[in-house]
Computed example of a mutant assay.
Amino acid sequence: MTPLSEQELHQLAMNIVGKEMEDQGFEFLAINSKPKKDPQYVALKKGKLHFVVVRAVRYPENPVVYDEKLMTTVRDHAVKYKARTFYAGVGIANNRDYEMPVHHEDDYVVNYAGLIEIK
């Protein structure tokens, strides 16, 4: 069994966050699917610009805990564009055993609390 790579886990997280944003009426202006190339999403909603940083988080790490220094840097950049800044941490674990890596052949569970605004 082949475990998902960092890029594949990131893509999975991007898809989960992107679908939620689409369902909430966001209009995507730019999408950057490279891990750690921030922000991943630049989007409009009701005429307001949003910067969204996406992270795939492996169990047992907590997906709502973010790198404050990074998010402050992104927020400070967003302010120049009058944009709001959000963090989207997506916890991903193997459905059979949380301690095992997520494999292509396995189901997985998602722990995603939604977009967290950085003020």
Rank of each mutant, 00 (worst) to 15 (best):
P3L: 05
S5I: 04
E8C: 06
L12A: 09
E22K: 09
E22H: 08
E22Y: 05
D23T: 08
Q24Y: 06
F26M: 06
F26G: 02
F28Y: 09
L29W: 08
A30R: 09
N32T: 00
N32I: 09
S33Y: 02
P35M: 05
K37Q: 13
D38N: 14
P39H: 10
P39A: 02
Q40M: 11
V42A: 11
K48W: 03
L49S: 02
F51T: 04
V54R: 01
E61F: 12
E61L: 14
E61I: 06
N62Y: 00
D67T: 10
T72L: 14
H77D: 10
H77V: 07
K80S: 11
K80L: 10
K80R: 13
Y81M: 03
K82C: 06
R84A: 10
T85K: 05
Y87L: 01
A88N: 02
G89L: 12
V90Q: 06
I92F: 10
R96K: 12
R96P: 04
D97S: 13
D97F: 04
Y98I: 12
Y98D: 13
M100T: 14
E105L: 08
Y108W: 15
Y108R: 08
V109W: 07
N111Y: 05
N111S: 09
N111R: 12
G114C: 05
I116Y: 03
E117K: 02
I118E: 03
K119G: 05
K119P: 02
